[in-house]
């Protein structure tokens, strides 16, 4: 995915596709849609996708972005894969707690910690 308009930084390490957001604010519907399409293409390209999404650069995240994460999670589970989230700022983590999505997703403090949980 080397598209010039990519909203993601992507690398592969130890069989895991690591995705980082370029945008600080993931609030705009059009951006969220294009992020969703880009991540879905990554998932589709793997037989049994292992995906780690890092929120290291992210300051704001809307409910539409949460909806897209749920769609991605379902897509990965449908292929017998694994999704991990990491480096979530405490203010954003609170959004996951309020919506109870902290129970649905596997969330880790750091990329290293998340990497250890893939099986």
């Amino acid at each position: 995915m080397a598209a010039t308009n990519s909203r993601l930084r992507i690398k592969k390490a130890d069989g895991v596709v690591q995705v980082e957001f370029i945008d600080r604010n993931i609030l705009d519907e059009a951006n969220i849609q294009s992020i969703g399409e880009e991540v879905s293409a990554l998932v589709d390209a793997e037989a049994s996708p292992k995906l780690l999404i890092s929120f290291a650069n992210v300051d704001h995240l809307s409910s539409a972005a949460l909806g897209t994460l749920i769609t991605i999670n379902n897509r990965i589970r449908g292929k017998g894969g694994q999704l991990r989230l990491a480096n979530i700022d405490p203010q954003i983590y609170e959004v996951f707690v309020i919506t109870r999505l902290n129970k649905l997703f596997s969330i880790h403090e750091t990329t290293e910690a998340a990497m250890k949980t893939f099986t």
Binding site: S62, S63, A64, L66, G67, T68, I70, T71, N74, V95, I98, T99, R100, L101, K103, L104
Partner: peptide, 15 residues
């Protein structure tokens, strides 16, 4: 409803 992909906007505004 926890896996529904929409419907969280209002609850976040309330929160």
């Amino acid at each position: 409803n926890v896996e529904r992909t929409s419907g969280r906007g209002i609850m976040l505004i309330r929160a």
